[in-house]
Simulated assay, not measured.
Amino acid sequence: MHVLVVLAHPLKDSFAAAIARTAVAALRDKGHHVDLLDLYAENFDPRLTAAERDSYMTGSYDLADIAPYAERLKAAEALILVFPQWWFNLPAILKGFIDRTFVPGVAFDYDDQGIKLGPKLEKLRHFWSFSTTGSPWWVVKFYMGDPVRRMLKRGIAAFCAKRVDFRMACLHNMDDTTPGKREEFLEKVRAQVGTL
């Protein structure tokens, strides 16, 4: 299986980077082809350009600046996002990656009236994420309503791929976690990607 792993953290020694390394190693051990996209290492520019926005609903989206990233996304049979949650949201670089690559003609198409979206990521069967947050689980789930999960599952995966297997695992209380809890989470990552 062709798996695109997208890492969104600026520090190479971060726990997010450790999660990505763990996922990549486990996937390769299972014989999958893994494409690791480290957004910071590749200096991905998250800013939507004027040309991109201007062409958004024209039927001919301007892919000039992001074509290689769009091709990597379209090739994926499984997509795994790895990121911390900051202010109950995605890091800006990951949001920009989504804004610039999950676009008309790549991730979806508009219907003839330009209203309804039709999924276009035909190869994508698995849309997973591994995340961390400094907040307790109950704050994320009950107080905030689990905004990142809702946005990824209902606002992106469901509109861009048919019958996609969506999963999200999050290590909460990251700021107070112990080395043992972090290792438990990495083992969870290994086990989950081992099911692909």
Rank of each mutant, 00 (worst) to 15 (best):
H2G: 05
L11N: 00
D13C: 03
A16G: 12
A17E: 13
A17C: 08
I19Y: 07
V24Q: 06
A26G: 02
R28V: 14
D29K: 13
V34N: 01
L36R: 09
Y40S: 09
A41E: 15
P46D: 00
R47A: 04
L48H: 01
L48I: 15
T49I: 11
A50Y: 07
A50D: 06
A51K: 12
S60W: 05
D62V: 03
L63G: 03
A64T: 15
D65N: 08
Y69M: 09
E71S: 12
L73Y: 11
E77D: 14
A78Y: 00
W86Q: 01
F88V: 06
N89V: 01
L90I: 00
L90Y: 03
A92S: 11
L94T: 01
F97C: 01
I98Y: 01
D99Q: 09
V106D: 10
V106L: 05
F108V: 07
K116L: 14
L117H: 10
G118C: 06
P119C: 12
P119T: 08
K120T: 01
G134E: 03
P136R: 02
F142K: 13
Y143A: 15
P147L: 08
V148N: 07
M151F: 15
L152W: 03
I156A: 03
I156Q: 02
F159H: 11
C160H: 09
V164F: 08
C170D: 05
M174K: 08
D175G: 13
